[in-house]
Design a binder for these strands. Structure first.
Lengths: 337, 337
DNA sequence: TTGTAGGCGTTATCAT
DNA sequence: ATGATAACGCCTACAA
């Protein structure tokens, strides 16, 4: 049975008008008489008419759809971003095509291609490799509205996102100001580390700016995003000779792992080991020892990124100069440091 | 400049063939000579041709896109579902339109309408109200492939999901078997509670099956999904006269809240208060006291749901009888009980 | 105020 | 083996 969807032609047939009259009437054109408009509209409502956006897209060269690509979705911050992006765009009549690149550059390219062949009007992307942005800059050059959900120094691409380097710098400097001289870091997981070295850079810059030696032995990298991997990593970190007295965890999950390790080994927080995390999730705020963390306003980030994207869409001919807008992060100090 | 995308006609013009020959050649039809196919294909590659799926959709009446609607995305389990769904569907050449209904039935309806007008081939949905499914059953009746991501007793709609009632029953029974007679529950947050009473039902059934009295005073409901709200709720729960000795938390986040409260008040876990959570996230497994929780295999759930949806898409004319497939949940017992 | 014709990019049918 | 024509549903000219 699968009752075929009603089209403009169906309404035209029923009301006796032509299809374009119906089309105009439904879009409220004053070129159509009030009487005809009312008649047509009630007929459309009665027949449960819904415009076919696919057909619209083809003729208007616009899909009212944008693509969102994240390199992983399990990250709670990116989850919030996805949520806010969808919510904000929905208000503007846009739908969201979503893909996660799983840390695979090939998948990222595939997703972009798939979205473009679906005529998305623009792209929001948290790229896998924050330093290899050529394929995204190329999109911009082709006047394809694109906004990165990261912070970058690159000039010729729009970017609205967290300045991870700065956040890491602030977190590490905070530990230095607390008097720590030997500070370790739990890096981002291997699976997320391709070319995203912002946090490690910030860590290192803070270390070196304070005149402290940068020691590669104090950089431990979990093999995935589980707490177990984090525990493994901090074990390794605390096993080096002359162990660190503080640790900057580049994600809250690894900060929790550090806390776990401390509980297991009876290490006192923050006296024997200070911890700072990143993202300020609920979990660290209410951990057994509340953990200091870098807070970022995700809602503001998402709405700013969407706003910028919509602006680019409205001005794709002129190709406005790219902007880079870092959203301010703030260190929240708690008992762990 | 926005260089227009190359179309079949462009390739046809360049190679001297007709557009349909080009179309057939690119799709590898043997009706076209090998020589022509090679020529056309290399020309297409050279001109960076990408088929326009919008145009394809219009003529094929199929978009190779499915819609995914969740009532909230911040829930880590739903996040994992979204991730796995996208990953699995991507392998089959499908893109995913995503929307979150934010617990608002109107938004849910809007999202469904928006997706249908975009000609999605099917719908995966975690509905807001698990008992009001008429609008979704209507989709099925219209031969529109639809799979619910919940478990339901309803017969005339496909459903692949966690049996929340059963999980809650098992969790509560476990506490009873541990000798507890007065068991409280931290219900789902208000924002998620519209018509999703599965967990509360399971809790109550276990209580009553054991011949214990069901006491509404022992049901506390956080006002949102934060840990703070959870702490507030357990405070309230533990303030009743003849306080419970055990609590079934319907989400891991509230289980953590209970743990937080216990730490703050010096309550011994599990001796003075036993806790069981739901979803078995990393966080509870590695909490200061590892928390028992109901584990669900999200990956299996997602792939099963996708598989079912693809089957429905392939057989939409015949409208296969609806199936209801609960994915098995398993109680993981840890130190908290 | 309304209707006709053409086209968006693709695929399917039917000729050649 | 290839090409011409129509169709998917809609919108924008232009004509009546």
């Amino acid at each position: 049975m699968g009752q075929r969807k009603t089209t403009l032609a169906d309404i035209a047939a029923k009301t006796g008008y032509g299809t374009n009259t119906v089309s105009l009437a439904l879009r409220g054109s004053t070129r159509i008489s009030q009487a005809a408009r009312d008649l047509i509209r009630s007929a459309a409502a009665e027949m449960d008419y819904v415009p076919n956006q696919i057909a619209q897209s083809l003729v208007l060269n616009r899909s009212n759809t944008i693509g969102l690509i994240l390199h992983e979705i399990t990250n709670p911050v990116l989850t919030s971003v996805a949520h806010m992006v969808q919510k904000t765009l929905g208000k503007h009549g846009y739908s969201v095509l979503f893909a996660s690149s799983n840390g695979d550059p090939e998948e990222e390219l595939r997703a972009i291609a798939a979205f473009r062949s679906r005529m998305v009007d623009g792209l929001l992307i948290y790229p896998i490799d924050h330093s290899k942005l050529d394929h995204l800059k190329a999109l911009r050059r082709n006047h394809f509205p694109t906004v990165l959900l990261i912070h970058t120094e690159a000039e010729d691409i729009d970017a609205v996102g967290i300045n991870e380097r700065q956040g890491a710098f602030d977190a590490t400097r905070h530990l230095i100001e607390r008097g720590h001289r030997r500070i370790g870091t739990l890096g981002p997981a291997f699976t997320a580390s391709i070319g995203n070295v912002g946090k490690l850079q910030g860590y290192r810059q803070a270390i070196e700016k304070a005149g402290l030696p940068y020691d590669p032995e104090l950089v431990a990298t979990p093999f995935d995003h589980s707490i177990e991997a984090g525990v493994r990593a901090i074990e390794q970190l605390m096993a080096v000779k002359n162990r660190p007295t503080a640790v900057f965890a580049t994600s809250d999950l690894t900060a929790l792992a550090a806390l776990r390790w401390a509980a297991k080994t009876g290490t006192k927080i923050p006296d024997e080991l200070a911890i700072v995390g990143f993202d300020d999730t609920d979990y660290v705020a209410h951990a057994s020892t509340p953990i200091s963390s870098i807070h970022n306003d995700v809602e503001q980030l998402a709405t700013a990124a969407v706003e910028r994207l919509l602006y680019l869409i409205d001005n794709k001919e002129t190709l406005p100069p790219a902007i880079s807008k870092p959203t301010p992060g703030a260190l929240i100090v708690r008992e762990s440091s």
